[in-house]
């Protein structure tokens, strides 16, 4: 950008795939330890109130819990397949798999809704009179149940949002906009001409004069892709979204036996 007649727009920061992945894993660790605090509480209270926990858990519907486990495991499979498909350039399959993942997530939430509704209908919810007359251990069990499955449910919703966003990113035709910063515009002002050059220096398209009336220059690059082609940056984005989704699944893998299968 030192010359006075050329403005070159280039990606100065090549996307750092490895860095993005490191950061995502670090973020997943924070999720693990966020739930970790709750698992510590669970462990302690189960140790202290093992009989009460057993009694309280019999009220939960183990079949619904098991169905939800299968639903989430399947969604984990489909998101992994979606990533693999995108890596192999099969955009259509990738989108289908992503769609199934989101449907699974929705199914999970619907089942969860019926499960919670039934509990609340029976008067078992935090602060309810029914619950407050129960033993200490049962109160703690249900408070933990609502706190942990509730926080997990919020994560499922966030995951749905993230995966939905990814669906949009992969499905759309990518459009990249590049704005030239103010300083560059200042430097090339005053009779400079602006053109898009090919590698060998040939001018492509019209040449524009940058005079005083130009305040900002924005270059819009539109890629029209064939169905198989896609924006390569989507791959790491989808992979990271997938990682997030898997961790949501992993947490449920523990929640299921700890709440539904206490004998």
């Amino acid at each position: 950008m030192s010359s006075h007649s050329n403005a070159i727009v280039a990606h100065k920061h090549p996307s750092d795939v490895e860095g993005a992945k490191i950061a995502m894993w670090l973020f997943l660790f924070t999720e693990v330890l966020l739930f970790g605090g709750l698992f510590i509480l669970y462990a302690v209270y189960r140790y202290q109130y093992s009989l009460d926990f057993h009694l309280a858990a019999t009220e939960l519907n183990a079949s619904l819990g098991a169905i939800n486990t299968v639903v989430l495991l399947t969604s984990s499979l489909t998101v992994a397949l979606s990533i693999e498909a995108l890596r192999r350039g099969n955009r259509k399959l990738s989108l289908w798999m992503l769609f199934i993942t989101i449907v699974c997530a929705l199914t999970f939430m619907v089942i969860k809704y019926f499960e919670w509704s039934a509990k609340i209908h029976h008067g078992i919810y935090p602060g309810s009179e029914t619950l407050l007359t129960a033993s200490s251990g049962e109160i703690v069990f249900y408070n933990l149940y609502y706190a942990m499955t509730g926080l997990h449910g919020i994560h499922v919703l966030i995951g749905m949002g993230v995966l939905g966003g990814m669906f949009y990113f992969i499905a759309r035709k990518p459009i990249n906009k590049e704005a030239i910063n103010y300083d560059v515009v200042e430097r090339i002002r005053g009779g400079s001409r602006m053109a898009v050059l090919a590698d060998d220096g040939r001018e492509l398209g019209d040449v524009i004069n940058i005079d005083d009336k130009v305040e900002r220059v924005e270059i819009k690059v539109i890629y029209e892709n064939t169905p198989e082609k896609f924006d390569p940056r989507n791959e790491i984005k989808l992979e990271n979204s997938g990682l997030y989704w898997h961790i949501v699944d992993v947490i449920w893998i523990f929640l299921f036996p700890l709440f539904y299968l206490i004998i």
Partner: peptide
């Protein structure tokens, strides 16, 4: 009132 620390709700 999702209590887990409140002793009156069995918390520690």
């Amino acid at each position: 009132s999702i209590g887990v620390f409140d002793p009156s709700l069995g918390g520690d």
